[in-house]
């Protein structure tokens, strides 16, 4: 009986010293889906992905990846998945082309075919010109593209992507997104860890929100966003002294508690219906408060966290990055 699930994890636990980095994570990912795991640094995303990719042994719980147990059948799992780690998983001291040939040969291609495959991938990922350069001289975006190319030397059935766009400029980020979409379009299941709600929203069919080692919410991007409301209105005043007055007016107009930002002239209010934002802004100018600017924003990860947990997304002192 083949399960329709690509990943089925139950009660995964992993501790480093006293820190429970992953504290009972359950996941069910359909085959062919792009599944987002969303959370701040230190939430346990990387540790979870490393357990699923057979790089770490869970302390407790179990996980099946494509029907194989990640501990007892680790070798079978490795034959079906590929991993793009948080640190780009490429060799700095080799050229881009050599990196791909190396991977091709390790996956079993004879030398000549490994070269042909490397050239094909370099062309497809726009890396032909840089092919002969050492990877340590690559830009962040080029490294990431090479990293992704290395992950699909043989098209995997399941791809783990750990924060593929962290630190990239918007242009490179869009390129990475296009690659992920193309992969998904051809039927590869993708598990995507990210700290950007926007990224999960753009790419994922379903999202699990993870915090302090636990899954705190799960659902489609739209259901998740609905749970935090339509977004936020951010207002910046000309005169910081008028902020309390503005907070009172906005709170009344939108039935929501305004959040005072670190910037003494700025405040944010959550809104359910963007149409009411216009009225709220009108109320401010009606009361004679001068505005330096205002904007409507998608809910950020911070707001998702605030809504789901009551505490803002923060960097915990866990050892996750070192794990």
């Amino acid at each position: 009986m083949t399960s329709t699930l690509a990943i089925e994890a139950t009660g995964l636990v992993k501790s480093f010293g006293k820190t429970r980095a992953v504290d009972g994570v359950d996941l069910a990912v359909q085959r062919g889906a792009v599944y987002g795991v969303l959370g701040p640094n230190g939430a346990g995303k990387t540790t979870t992905i490393r357990m699923l990719a057979t790089l770490l042994r869970p302390d407790a719980g179990s996980a099946q990846v494509l029907g194989h147990d990640v501990v007892s059948e680790a070798h079978a799992v490795r034959g079906l998945v590929s991993l793009t780690g948080q640190l780009a998983s490429v060799d700095d001291d080799l050229t881009g082309r050599e990196n791909l040939i190396l991977l091709g040969r390790l996956l079993g291609y004879p030398s000549k075919q490994a070269r042909a495959r490397a050239d094909e991938l370099l062309a497809a990922f726009g890396l032909e010109e840089a092919a002969g350069r050492l990877v340590k001289n690559f830009s962040g975006g080029m490294r990431r593209r090479l990293d992704l190319a290395a992950s699909i030397v043989v098209t995997p059935q399941l791809m783990f992507l750990d924060e593929p766009t962290t630190g990239l400029d918007p242009r490179s980020r869009n390129q990475v997104w296009d690659i992920v979409r193309a992969l998904a379009g051809l039927g590869t299941t993708v598990l995507l860890c990210t700290q950007y709600l926007d990224e999960a929203d753009q790419l994922a069919d379903r999202i699990a929100v993870i915090d302090r080692g636990k899954v705190i919410a799960e659902g489609t991007p739209s259901s998740l966003k609905a749970s935090v409301g339509g977004g936020a209105l951010r207002v910046r005043l000309l005169d910081p002294l008028q902020r309390d007055e503005a907070a009172r007016l906005l709170g009344r107009a939108l039935d929501s508690e305004p959040h005072l930002e670190a910037d003494p002239a700025a405040l944010t209010v959550r809104i359910d219906d963007p149409a009411r934002a216009a009225d709220a802004v009108a109320a401010l100018s009606g009361a004679g408060l001068g505005l330096a600017g205002f904007s409507l924003a998608q809910p950020s990860l911070d707001e998702v966290f605030l809504a789901l947990t009551g505490h803002p997304a923060e960097d915990d002192d866990t050892q996750e990055e070192a794990a």
Binding site: L107, G108, Q113, V154, T155
Partner: peptide, 15 residues
């Protein structure tokens, strides 16, 4: 080209 590169990779026997 990307789609071609993605779909043209039959898995060789493991080394």
């Amino acid at each position: 080209t990307l789609n071609a590169a993605l779909s043209s990779s039959a898995r060789p026997p493991r080394p």
